[in-house]
Design a binder for these strands. Structure first.
Length: 604
RNA sequence: GGGGUGUUAGUUAAGUCGGUUAUAACGCCGGCCUGUCACGCCGGAGGCCAGGGGUUCGAGUCCCCUACACCCCGCCA
């Protein structure tokens, strides 16, 4: 007797049969997506990753097969043999295969299924906690199947693109030496070297630069990276980067290559033709107008920096603003057009929202017909001159609402940046995915090389210590590090940073000066980065590169709301895996073998 | 480290001012049905209301603590 799998092989997927196949005998394998038992006839929607096909078991054709079909329940895994038949007048327009059905002559139940903890439907309304606990069931759903297929295709297109362009796909170690600065590393104890630890690579940065020194002048890798930092909607502790490095290039060469990739991805995955070149914006402008270096430019509603205006007017009669600028803080405002129609209650809610981000409050002013302010803590004391100047600077019209933040620069930027997006969402300025969508790509360029770290009182690398400063700024490296700008760039899409890179420092002399400006001694630099510093001294070519966040690309390509929806097996916000229970305990012997002892005391 | 939201059948939710036996839909179990496709009809089972403590004559409901999940700040060169 012929058996499924051994003798009866699958002939088609559940997503491909159409009227052209009518009359064929076919074999489908899959899962019971739905059943409708009418007594004399049993209808089964059979599902695999390609789609769904209706199978009919009729009592008067094969009574024993019909009886077995009566036992079928949701998610049973089965094989079916039968004939493709036209549905005649019973077409189901919602199914791709809805013009045909299979009249089954044979059925095998490969495996029954207990009732699943949640139903496998396209619509996802199950708590994420439950979905993650049974991720293998969650992944049976069509939307996640589609997402992972998109992910596979992104990998495929990327490999083809770079390989065609003469790049070599080369690997780098995951287990390396800990280097300070940057993200916190996951550590791996070394059994063979008691008391020593490997660090899991937070990026292949140093190795890819060394590939350049070695002469592999065009490198790429689709690579996992590990960072032991707190998680977010768009941050997982292990994530995938499309990592690229090139020799003998300047910034625009990197942009050309990456724009080419992105254009190809959007065309092949979405059929969308993107315009090139992508827009560019200096870092300082991005901070001033949008409060961060990853502005969502699908809508405008910019911030206006009022610090200088307030200074010119000696505080303009408003003690709070005066104090803020005297304490070296900044003052920013944002004009919310009257059309937003924010009620007083809604504005009060906004105040709660910004307090959660460290704001002390949310000063506001409603602009009246003559330009006067109402509903504002400033209304009584502000001088008409400053008020008029602010109205002019923000282009405020009657009915508009002005929102203010003042004080510590970093807080003001963060609060205003989030507020801008928050209000835009409420106003419906951000189009839904798939609604003709906007793809606002942006290169944020020319950031400062250093940022001042108030805790240590030191200038620290804003990104990493191997970024090349602008030649014209080199004279200020010692005298005024804050005005040294560099060849670093971020690629931003719709408010998400999807990539970042730089032209690297290949000149050992400048490198030494950068370390010095950062307060890192030559000995220190040697012990931490000696191998790279040596390499730079041995004919290192001018080089630069970039890394794209592959997970974020897929998230944006698919319209997913969270990185967890584009990662097959994601971690929770506390870094746990609800399915396997990782991270878990290990026994004492394992720890002894590794010369590791836990100091953790529960409850402390 | 900090701020916020949430946790009620297997799942998703409702549950009023603190009041009697905690509802519904889907799923599950039993029965009927040959054209359904969110099939339909009849019947049934299923709950430590996250856990602990408190207030009260009485708590799913009010208060406190804990756990877990999510969102944000810090952090993420």
């Amino acid at each position: 007797m012929a058996r499924f799998i051994q003798d009866i092989k699958r002939t088609h997927s559940c997503g491909e049969l159409a009227t052209g196949d009518i009359g064929k005998e076919v074999v489908l394998f899959g899962w019971v997506n739905n059943r409708r038992d009418h007594g004399g006839a049993v209808f089964i929607d059979l599902r695999d990753r390609a789609g769904v096909t209706q199978v009919v078991f009729e009592e008067d054709v094969r009574p024993e097969v019909h009886d077995l079909a009566g036992q079928l329940r949701l998610e049973y895994c089965v094989g079916v043999r039968g004939k493709v038949v036209s549905r005649g007048g019973n077409v189901n327009p919602k199914l791709r295969t809805g013009e045909i059905e299979i009249h089954a002559t044979e059925l095998e139940i490969f495996n029954r299924s207990e009732p699943t903890p949640f139903q496998i439907e396209d619509r996802i309304d199950t708590a994420e906690e439950k979905r993650l606990q049974y991720r293998y069931l969650d992944l049976r759903r069509a939307p996640l199947q589609k997402t992972l297929m998109t992910r596979a295709k992104v990998n495929h297109v990327t490999r083809n693109y770079f390989t065609d362009a003469g790049f070599l796909e080369l690997e780098t170690p995951f287990m390396g030496k800990y280097t300070p600065g940057g993200a916190r590393n996951f550590l791996v104890p070394s059994r063979l070297n008691p008391g020593k630890f490997y660090a899991l690579a937070e990026s292949p940065q140093l190795y890819k630069q060394l590939y350049m020194v070695a002469g592999f002048d065009r490198y790429f890798q689709i690579v996992r990276c590990f960072r032991d930092e707190d998680l977010r909607l768009d941050r997982q502790p292990e994530f995938t980067q499309i990592d690229v490095e090139m020799s003998f290039v300047e910034q625009s060469d990197v942009f050309d290559v990456i724009e080419g990739l992105v254009v190809r991805l959007w065309k092949e995955l979405l059929g969308v033709e993107l315009a090139r070149p992508f827009r560019r914006m200096p870092f300082d402008e991005s901070m001033a107008r949008y409060g961060n270096d990853k502005p969502d430019l699908r809508f405008d509603m910019p911030h206006v920096v009022l610090t200088d205006l307030v200074k010119q007017h000696q505080g303009g009669g408003v003690p709070l603003l005066d104090e803020a600028v005297k304490a070296k803080g900044i003052v920013k405002a944002m004009r919310v057009p009257a059309s937003a129609g924010l009620s007083r209650t809604e504005i009060d809610k906004l105040e709660e929202y910004v307090r959660g981000m460290g704001a002390k409050g949310l000063a506001r002013a409603k602009v009246a017909d003559g330009g006067e302010w109402t509903q504002s803590p400033f209304a009584k004391s502000i001088t008409p001159e400053l008020r008029k100047a602010i109205n002019a600077a923000t282009e405020a019209q009657a009915g508009d609402l002005l929102l203010f933040q003042f004080g510590k620069e970093s807080v003001v930027h963060t609060v205003m940046a989030n507020l801008r997006v928050h209000i835009a969402k409420r106003m419906g300025l951000i189009p839904e995915y798939g609604s003709g969508g906007k793809w606002n790509f942006l290169w944020v360029v020319d950031p400062p090389l250093f940022e001042y770290d108030e805790e240590s009182g030191q200038w620290a690398a804003a990104h990493h210590a191997f970024t090349r400063p602008r030649d014209q700024d080199l004279p200020y490296l010692e005298s005024d590090p804050g005005r040294v700008y560099c060849w670093r760039y971020d690629l931003v899409l719709n408010g998400f940073e999807i990539g970042g890179g730089s032209i690297r420092l290949h000149d050992p002399e400048v490198q030494a000066r950068v370390f010095k400006a950062m307060g890192i001694s030559a000995e220190d630099a040697r012990s931490k980065f000696g191998f790279l510093l040596d390499a730079l001294k041995m004919g290192a070519p001018p080089h630069g590169g970039i890394a794209l966040g592959m997970d974020r690309l897929v998230m944006l390509l698919t319209g997913a709301e969270s990185l967890r929806d584009v990662v097959a097996w994601p971690k929770t916000q506390k870094g746990t895996d609800l399915m396997t229970g990782a991270p878990g305990d290990v026994d004492a012997k394992q720890l002894r073998d590794l010369y590791v002892k836990s100091t953790y005391e529960p409850g402390k």
